[in-house]
């Protein structure tokens, strides 16, 4: 196997002017299960595929609430995400104490990105192996940011990260021009369809595109109930429907699950019943 002498330390530049350790950390993000976000007229939607590491365990936590106006979705090393989430929560609380108002998302994201960057410039620490999607509704409206291990961050109308995120991105790129006039309720549909794209690529798939968080820009920014709600598609009164090529199945027996699994050659994991609450398959 090719091995470079420039790729074992974060503080070493390769002759091409690249930081290979940082690039490898970016790969860790691509190993995480996919998550995506969309910005609409009146809010932001985040959605993520929740993996179940083994049959007896619960699902991963992909969406973490930071503050009443701010939620993150994570892809990559979940433990790294938790430390970052802790920092973000503290920052948001401190800001609320000092200014009596929510922290601007852009400024929090920049601080976090700077934190990422510092790990890439000193010998003693490794880069964070996690990418974040940060959704927030603040004084300047709804926003969606992506951070990555290199310390770069960007603001998007829609974006997807994690394993096989490219297919979700393709879906989003096709539709993103309409998003700015779309209310969040409809955006949920787009979010679920984009997520479904990720799994379809794997041909016949099983996933739990279940509780997505959406933030809604309310009239009064200080009322938390106005700003954030859990929109569980299966329980929400205006639940988004997936239409078109997709259909939902509610599998009843393990035998059926096995047959599905055989279709997913690369997955290699027996999906559990809980896994299949929202099973998505090809038409």
């Amino acid at each position: 196997m090719f091995r470079s002498q420039y790729d074992t330390d974060v503080t070493v530049w390769s002759p091409q002017g690249r930081l290979l350790q940082v690039e490898y950390a970016m790969e860790a993000v691509k190993q995480g299960s996919a998550c995506l976000g969309l910005v609409g007229k009146d809010g932001v939607v985040l959605a993520a595929l929740k993996r179940q590491p083994n049959e007896l365990s619960g699902h991963q936590k992909k969406l973490l609430k930071i503050d009443d106006h701010l939620v993150i979705a994570v892809a990559g090393l979940n433990a790294d995400a938790r430390t970052l989430a802790k920092v973000m929560r503290t920052e948001c609380l401190n800001h609320r104490y000092v200014y009596g108002a929510p922290l601007q998302g852009a400024r929090l994201v920049q601080d976090i990105a700077d934190k990422y960057q510092r790990c890439t410039q000193t010998y003693v620490r490794r880069p964070y192996g996690v990418g974040l999607l940060v959704a927030c509704c603040d004084a300047t409206g709804p926003h969606l940011y992506e951070t990555c291990p290199s310390g770069n961050f960007s603001e998007f109308v829609a974006v997807a990260i994690g394993a096989r995120a490219q297919s979700a991105k393709t879906y989003l790129e096709k539709h993103h021009k309409t998003f700015k006039d779309t209310p969040v309720e409809e955006l949920c549909t787009h979010a679920l369809q984009a997520l479904a794209c990720v799994e379809i690529n794997r041909c016949a798939a099983i996933s739990t595109p279940r509780p997505s968080f959406w933030l809604k820009l309310g009239h009064d920014l200080r009322d938390p109930r106005d700003r954030i709600q859990r929109a569980a598609p299966h329980s929400h009164p205006e639940r988004p429907r997936i239409e078109g090529r997709l259909k939902f199945y509610f599998p009843t027996g393990i035998g059926r699950l096995r047959r599905w699994r055989q279709g997913t050659r690369r997955g290699g994991r027996v999906p559990s019943r809980r896994d299949c609450r929202w099973a998505v398959a090809l038409d």
């Binding site: 770069n152 960007s154 603001e155 998007f156 109308v157 829609a158 974006v159 991105k169 989003l172 790129e173 993103h176």
Partner: peptide, 11 residues
């Protein structure tokens, strides 16, 4: 601009 979905004010 690495992506179509990037905001012009970004980066």
């Amino acid at each position: 601009m690495l992506s179509k979905m990037l905001l012009p004010s970004s980066n």
